[in-house]
Amino acid sequence: MTAAVLWHNVFFWIFGLAASALAVGVVVSTNVVRMAVCLVMSLAAVAGLFFLAGAPLLGAIQILVYVGGTMVLLVFGVMLTARLPAAAMRTNAGQWVAALIVGAALLAVLWQAGRGLSAACARRDAAAPSAAEIAPANQTVTELGLALLGVRADAAQSAEGGSSTQRPGYLLPFELISVHLLAALVGAAYLARSRWPARRQAADDVRSTDME
């Protein structure tokens, strides 16, 4: 195999094994801070997988939003609620056995589905028109941005008429999830506000040092 394919393989195995092993680490570890660290590194490995699969924009978004945002949020939550002994919250062995059986069964189902899907894609690939007839999708930022507006450069010729570069744009879902995110964050900030009116009245003369 060529050098590019070889290095793609090597890095896939590195990132894939890291993501899977760290995910197993999240399940297995009992200390919640170690769980958070394992999860952060697993998400970073998944971002590496995205870079490898040719979606660098998505890899950067994953690092920025997931690793840099969501995980910081989770770690803050961990710090704010970490005053309990971890041993008090162990799951007993019977529940572990049941969970592992369900997990193994689910993994088998998903693996079979994956194999079938891969075979179907390979068959569809063999019957597909050659790449010369179709503009290859570069998945650069320009292409993705224009796809938001509905102008598609990766036109697969659709048999049922219509222009080949016209596909439904994704601008409306994009705006909807932006507003949804704003509403969710405002709601979360409201839900998590401190509500100790008695403490506030008592603290009128004694200034607390909490940051508001």
Partner: peptide, 28 residues
């Protein structure tokens, strides 16, 4: 490395997430 490998990694992550949701008593 092709599609089956990526789908396997996705499946493993999914199953680990389900296991976490089933077995962890810590809400976080």
């Amino acid at each position: 490395v092709g599609l089956p490998h990526y789908l396997l990694v996705g499946a493993v992550l999914f199953v680990c997430g389900i296991l976490c949701m089933m077995t962890k008593r810590n809400a976080i």
